[in-house]
Simulated assay, not measured.
Amino acid sequence: MIKKIKFLIILLIIPILSSCSGTGSKNRPTISTTGTGNTTIYFTREGGFVASGVLAKIEVNGSEIAQLGVNEYTTSNVTGNYRIKVSGAGIGGFGMGTDSTSGVADEKNYFYIIGVKQSLFSTKFTINETTESGYKQSQ
């Protein structure tokens, strides 16, 4: 009987602990100089209590690039037009609203902060474009 209880507790705790860490990095990436022929988009996820256990799945042009936990970073290099979509990942993300934005790769760096917007009956991820200095101050 005690073995069954321990097994159930472990079964319940593992998904909770694994949902807290994403595939992003806790270290802010080095920002490349512009004019190198590449467009780099930089992402960070804000900290907070609401939806902190839900990973933010980031897709660029339909391909998943990362699942960000709270205060994590990731980057992606793009060419041409690009479309970004953020949604909840895994079981914890069920029912979370999504957000999307688009842009044109023009050999500049673009910076985005992933946040969470809570209303009375719903919660959704948001994508906010910011400047390089705003990105650096976000954490």
Rank of each mutant, 00 (worst) to 15 (best):
Y135D: 10
G80H: 01
I14K: 01
R28C: 02
T39P: 01
G93E: 06
G37L: 06
N71R: 13
I13N: 06
L68S: 13
G47P: 00
N71K: 14
N27A: 13
T131D: 01
Y135Q: 08
F49E: 10
Q137Y: 10
V50I: 14
I58D: 04
A89P: 03
A105S: 13
T44G: 12
N71Q: 12
G95P: 00
S100R: 06
Y112N: 05
F125G: 05
L11T: 15
S102T: 09
S122E: 12
A89G: 04
G80T: 05
Y112W: 01
G22T: 12
T101K: 10
A51C: 09
V60F: 00
K124T: 09
N77Q: 15
S18Q: 09
G97S: 07
V60Y: 00
E64F: 00
F43A: 10
G92M: 11
T74S: 14
S19M: 07
E132K: 13
I113H: 02
V116C: 10
K136L: 11
T74F: 07
Y110F: 07
Y110L: 10
S32V: 12
I5V: 15
S133N: 12
G53F: 11
S25P: 01
A66I: 08
R45I: 11
T74V: 15
T130E: 04
K117A: 13
E64V: 09
S21D: 09
V86Q: 03
R28S: 02
K108H: 15
N81Y: 09
R45F: 06
I9W: 02
K85F: 04
R45C: 08
S76R: 14
G92F: 04
E59N: 15
G115A: 00
G35L: 10
T123I: 13
T123C: 06
G103L: 05
T126S: 06
F125H: 07
Y135L: 03
G47R: 04
K124M: 08
F43Y: 07
L68T: 10
G115C: 01
Y42S: 05
T79Y: 08
S87V: 01
N71T: 13
K6R: 13
T30E: 10
F7V: 13
R28W: 03
Y112I: 02
S52D: 14
E59W: 00
S133K: 11
G62M: 11
G115M: 02
Y135S: 02
Y112M: 08
F121P: 00
E107H: 09
D99P: 04
S21H: 15
Q137H: 06
L17C: 09
I127V: 03
S25F: 03
E107S: 15
S52T: 10
G24E: 02
M96T: 05
I41R: 00
